[in-house]
């Protein structure tokens, strides 16, 4: 069994290498605190006696700390659980420090999770009034969207009507009303605009027309 004082020294050494300063706590309490890089760090220390139940409660406790915005770590004896089990904890953004005969070692740092976890926890722990405020805001948005929907369907009906009207006007002969022309010109302008935003493999691709003709009655 590794002596607690040795373990404590190894941990403080490791953390100071990461640029962190000891803040308080003790091995007897089983919790040590550090600060640095703009974060508070909590390390829960487990010894060989506890076994798996201890690990589970430490994981849950650490999850709460992490949710409060602290950087939570668990210091565990190397053989307390299988690597896959430890990874289940690691995937929650809780750091794992393993100790054994070769000293102290951190499980692989996460690729992307830290960023993600931060946003999750900050969302979770906003206070209730803030949440209600947001719900109200969302309700106002929903109402706005409903209004827009109504407008869109009115616009669509008007467009259809306009189409029919201009067809009839055309039937009167070659005299096209001037505003019909501008409407047509506007449209082609628009599609030219969207074309410039298209990726290179789409531009002037003859397949666009071939595929657009597909349908139950064609092809």
């Amino acid at each position: 069994m590794v002596l607690r004082t040795v373990l404590e020294r190894a941990l403080t050494n490791y953390m100071s290498k990461q640029g962190l300063r000891f803040e308080g706590g003790s091995m007897e309490e089983g919790v040590l605190r550090f600060v640095g890089n703009g974060f508070a760090y909590v390390v829960k220390v487990l010894d060989e006696m506890g076994g798996r139940p201890e690990l589970i409660s430490a994981a849950l406790e650490s999850a709460f700390w992490a949710a409060k915005g602290e950087r939570a770590y668990i210091l565990v004896p190397r053989n307390v659980a299988s690597m896959d089990e430890l990874m289940a904890i690691r995937l929650h953004g809780i750091g794992l420090l393993l100790h054994g005969t070769h000293g102290l070692e951190e499980l692989p740092p996460m690729v992307k999770h830290i960023g993600k976890d931060e946003t999750q926890t900050s969302v979770k722990y906003e206070n209730a009034s803030h949440v209600i405020e947001r719900i109200e805001k969302l309700e106002r948005f929903v109402q706005r969207i409903n209004e827009i929907d109504t407008l869109v369907s009115r616009l669509e009906r008007l467009e259809a009507l306009y189409g029919k009207l201009s067809d009839r006007l055309l039937a009167f002969g070659d005299v096209r009303p001037s505003h019909v022309k501008t409407a047509v010109a506007d449209k082609s302008n628009n599609s030219a605009d969207t074309k410039t935003e298209l990726p290179s493999f789409m531009k002037d691709n003859p397949w666009l027309d071939i595929l657009a003709e597909k349908g139950p009655f064609n092809a």
Binding site: R52, L55, A59, A88, I89, L91
Partner: peptide, 8 residues
């Protein structure tokens, strides 16, 4: 494992 289940 139980652990991974508890951790979701």
């Amino acid at each position: 494992s139980v652990l991974s289940q508890i951790m979701g």
